[in-house]
């Protein structure tokens, strides 16, 4: 489904940082992959490279066989198939919850009114905030906003969902409601790449865990392997610090 081959990414501003160093990985359809690692390890950058919000400097990224770094690839068409959920939600503050979910359906997918409204209400129901359709994002709690953001991404019927620390900006009591939505999504067979610090979620839901440090993938494996007998020293150190 997703194949990353030897990508490099260096940021020059504000100062030179090697964010990704020779990263390769593969994500199969239906797989839930959790990416963990200390901050600054490049996990968010890797995720953002997958839908071309950042362009990798070199290497190749294929999504369903399409080379996304090829300048000839229609990147907008590709992004419609790759949903993304951000740490800071990034809901459109000038649009109601319903409009947030229908906007891209209208202008990108060109769906009819019946289609996009059906889809929107189905998803609002699914993420558990059916009664908030007509309120504006700033009237919602953080957890509710993030669930709207998930519904917004799902409305495009993406083939993959990318989650960039979806619970990091939330108050502790709201993390659960967002993780529940994600768990349900995983059980339905959605392909997911999740950058998170929620080790409980990784243990419970992940098919595979990738540990990154200093812009490189240090270790990857099943959650059992990962949390019971990690091999790499850096992994052990990281896990001992957070568990």
């Amino acid at each position: 489904m997703i194949e990353v081959q030897n990508i490099y990414k260096t940021f020059l501003v504000p100062h030179r940082v090697q964010a990704l160093v020779n990263v390769s990985c593969k994500i199969e359809a239906g797989e839930v992959v959790v990416v963990i690692g200390p901050s600054g390890s490049g996990k968010s950058t890797l995720l953002r490279c997958l839908n071309h919000l950042e362009a990798a400097d070199s290497g190749k990224i294929f999504i369903e066989g399409i080379d996304i770094l090829d300048p000839k690839t229609n990147i907008n068409k590709l992004r419609a198939e790759v949903g993304m959920v951000f740490q800071s939600f990034n809901l459109f503050p000038h649009k109601s919850v319903l409009e947030n979910i229908t906007l891209a359906q209208k202008v990108v997918r060109k769906r009819t009114k019946d289609e996009y409204l059906d889809k929107a209400f189905y998803l609002l129901n699914k993420v558990g905030i059916k009664d908030k359709a007509n309120v504006f994002p700033d009237q919602l709690s953080g957890g509710q906003q993030q669930r709207v953001a998930i519904a917004r991404a799902l409305a495009m019927d993406p083939k993959v969902m990318l989650f960039d620390e979806p619970t990091s900006a939330l108050d502790p009591e709201m993390i659960g409601e967002v993780l529940d939505v994600m768990k349900n999504l995983a059980m339905e067979g959605m392909t997911m790449v999740v950058v998170t610090h929620e080790m409980g979620f990784a243990k419970e839901v992940a098919d595979r865990v990738i540990f990154m440090d200093m812009g490189a993938i240090v270790e990857e494996g099943t959650p059992e392997h990962f949390f019971t007998n990690p091999e790499n020293e850096r992994t052990k150190l990281f896990l001992s610090q957070i568990l």
Partner: peptide, 17 residues
């Protein structure tokens, strides 16, 4: 905020949209 552009682009909207 940059996140607004990122969110809309990540949904497949063009720059103009």
């Amino acid at each position: 905020h940059r996140g607004q552009v990122e969110a809309s682009r990540s949904l497949g909207m063009t720059y103009a949209q």
